[in-house]
Design a protein around this nucleic acid. Structure first.
Lengths: 250, 250
DNA sequence: AAAATAGTGTCTCTCAGACAGTATCTC
DNA sequence: GAGATACTGTCTGAGAGACACTATTTT
């Protein structure tokens, strides 16, 4: 038990303290679900589970707010990723905040969960990072095979994956898992890796090219077939939304 | 300065304590944006702003987690509503968590923001509650006229309103602002109150009646015209999603 | 009958999906 | 030319929007 915990326990026992204010003392952490596509496989970034009683050896990258460094919550999340891998996430958004008195045996605890995407480019991981595969049931996307993670991290991962599955169907989010330049077929591959199926190329082409989301680099990717045009996302701050869902993928 | 604050200050000054753990000490609050429709007007529930230096007299209902009462974060949010009004919200969801070192002069502070809808039925408020009008610019829904609120609560309100505006267009959320039974025209009124415009009755009818979302009570509402069928939401746990947006309302 | 709102029929438009057909590369 | 993948043309279907038309009540 480290100094913080012993201190917290001592504080908690002071029953004359107004209970409504006690929870300024809740244990706060920021957990990150960082996903990437690697060799046709959706993967999640993990760190060693530090707690001795952890049910599994790996856990989501997590940490505490460091007021010396972080002026915003998002910076805390970013820091968890950069501590493990040299890559900058192409996407970062808050998923949910879990707070209750049963997820941590020490009492009330609160976690802000972030969701990050990393581009599928060559990059190097630092020390303790490990990417674990996420399996997709081709038949039903609703029950992906998640790796075992310590604490309640598997359920946090599930929530993030559900967010991903939902958002790829009505936004430009799939592009954030791809390298800076890519072909249309690679967009289809993103759908396949995430959902186990994909809309037809006609629909992808209509939405992304017809919708003026992409910029043609003029380059071609050559293979043992007709070369494919190489595209790049047009400059924009955040994912654009469409007003229909792909339905093949439901 | 209450006891917690002085304690926090003292603790913060202990420079030998690992800074990464300090933020277990962040000030945590749960803020609620509770909305209702009252006489054709979208309204937000407010409480008096307690802080002496508050910029405006009213604020969103907010409170701390009380570990004696709350086992889940959502209960803390619910408690803020029931302390001010006798009504149960028909909808409650988490919006976002704001955490940074500049929204509270005391240092790092963290707020989990919830978003609640209350049915437009006769109900009584308790003591300090006050419902403030939210104006909609009929021309552009993107800039509603929000009431002045203390702290950063106007910006939290804006985020919640944006969530509402977005979600009414592709889900059954509008129904959660209506009484238990209602007519189709009242659904149109909800759109008008929130967005300043509404999809045509034909589209509302197709989506809600054709989509098998509603149950016809068999009753009629009489006025100085052809009576309207009275409907009720079919039993379901949460808002159902459609796979297109209404476009008239963009 | 007039006024008012409820509700229907039907056409158009957009965009996803299906699928056949054409294009352009390597081997 | 065969094989492979890229890309286009075009039809269907779902569902939103527009709008004319009909229905049923009160006054």
């Amino acid at each position: 038990m480290n100094r913080l915990e012993s201190f917290t326990d001592q504080f908690m026992s002071q029953s004359d303290f107004p209970p409504a204010q006690l929870l300024s003392m809740a244990l706060i952490s920021v957990d990150v679900v960082a996903l990437r596509l690697h060799q046709g496989q959706l993967q999640v970034l993990t760190a060693p589970a530090t707690h001795p009683k952890a049910t599994f050896p790996r856990a989501l990258p997590a940490g505490r707010i460091d007021p010396q460094i972080d002026s915003e919550l998002e910076q805390t999340a970013l820091r968890q990723i950069t501590q493990l891998t040299s890559a900058e996430p192409s996407w970062l958004e808050q998923v949910e905040t879990i707070g209750n008195n049963h997820r941590d045996s020490r009492g009330w605890s609160l976690t802000v969960v972030y969701f990050a995407l990393l581009r599928g480019e060559p990059e190097k991981d630092l020390g303790e990072a490990e990417w674990l595969d996420i399996g997709i049931q081709t038949t039903a996307c609703h029950d992906p095979q998640l790796p075992d993670l310590a604490y309640d991290h598997q359920s946090l991962l599930l929530t993030a994956i559900e967010r991903l599955c939902s958002k790829v169907q009505y936004s430009t989010l799939p592009l954030y898992l791809l390298p800076e330049v890519f072909t249309l077929s690679e967009i289809r591959d993103v759908f396949n890796c995430i959902l186990g199926k994909s809309p037809p190329m006609r629909s992808i082409r209509n939405r992304f090219v017809g919708g003026n989301i992409l910029e043609d680099t003029g380059e071609k990717r050559y293979g043992s077939n007709r070369p494919a045009s190489i595209y790049r996302m047009k400059e924009c701050d955040c994912a654009q939304l469409f007003n229909r869902l792909y339905q093949t993928t439901q």
